[in-house]
């Protein structure tokens, strides 16, 4: 079942000589429960595509449908509420609010909705991500891996329909990267969520169900070759 679709999605920056087409008429479909990795070299438009799909950036033309709704037809207010409830976003540089504790950062999306916090779910999420004993610490007192796990918990807390991750392991050492990736894949399977992740690292991409490639703003399916495990890695 389709959960997200883009049609003729285009983003152009600048004018005249400074005009740059970061994304050119991207048409793609993502199904519910899929783990999609988007790979490509630096400056290819990966982040632009991800930000457009998550409703964080306004396209030059084209649209994005999530659960059948064209998110760019929504008012700014409605889009914010939609993002809050239906989309989870994990940044490369964690982006936790420094004056809130780990657990406060996690429940922030729910507070914006003026909803009562589901403490049981919070406890479970923190346990799954191995953060229970750090829940009251400020971000400054957490390691990089712990901070990223907290960002993951925040993205998952509202049980969004789709989770976008922008190079989530880009700022981590290899051990933390492996841990975070395992937790992400385990969480989305457990909560039946869709994950779209961008990376330049094929070792990360190989965990995905599907890999898309982007070069100079043009999106294509990634052609892979079969491994011993039966998995194409291209």
């Amino acid at each position: 079942m389709e959960i997200m679709q883009t049609y003729e999605l285009t983003k152009v920056y600048g004018r005249a000589e400074a005009r740059v087409e970061a994304l050119k008429s991207a048409n793609l479909t993502i199904n519910k429960g899929e783990f999609v990795a988007i790979v490509g070299p630096s400056g290819s438009g990966k982040s632009t595509l991800l930000h457009l799909m998550a409703g964080l950036l306004n396209p030059t033309s084209g649209g994005v449908l999530i659960e059948g709704k064209n998110i760019y037809n929504l008012s700014e207010n409605d889009l914010s509420i939609f993002r809050r409830r239906k989309i989870g976003f994990i940044f490369q540089f964690f982006n936790l609010l420094p004056m809130l504790s780990l657990e406060e950062n996690v429940i922030l999306p729910a507070l914006l909705d003026n909803k009562k916090v589901d403490m049981e779910y919070l406890d479970e999420l923190l346990k799954v991500l191995g953060l229970t004993d750090r829940r009251r610490h400020l971000p400054g007192a957490l390691s990089g891996g712990q901070q990223q796990r907290a960002a993951i918990a925040r993205a998952l807390f509202t049980k969004p329909s789709i989770v976008f991750a922008d190079e989530p392991t880009g700022n981590l050492d290899s051990k933390s990267s492996k841990e975070v990736l395992e937790l992400m894949t385990m969480s989305i399977k457990k909560y039946n969520q869709t994950l779209v992740l961008i990376t330049h690292d094929m070792n990360v991409a190989k965990h995905a169900d599907r890999i898309l490639r982007i070069d100079d703003g043009i999106v294509s399916e990634h052609v892979t070759s079969i491994t011993a495990e039966g998995r194409d890695i291209g």
Binding site: A54, L56, N77, F89, L97, L112, D113, R154
Partner: peptide, 15 residues
């Protein structure tokens, strides 16, 4: 920057 992050999480203009 923090307000940008909150917007990414889903805070509205009014909030």
């Amino acid at each position: 920057k923090h307000y940008g992050l909150l917007r990414a999480i889903g805070i509205t203009q009014k909030q």
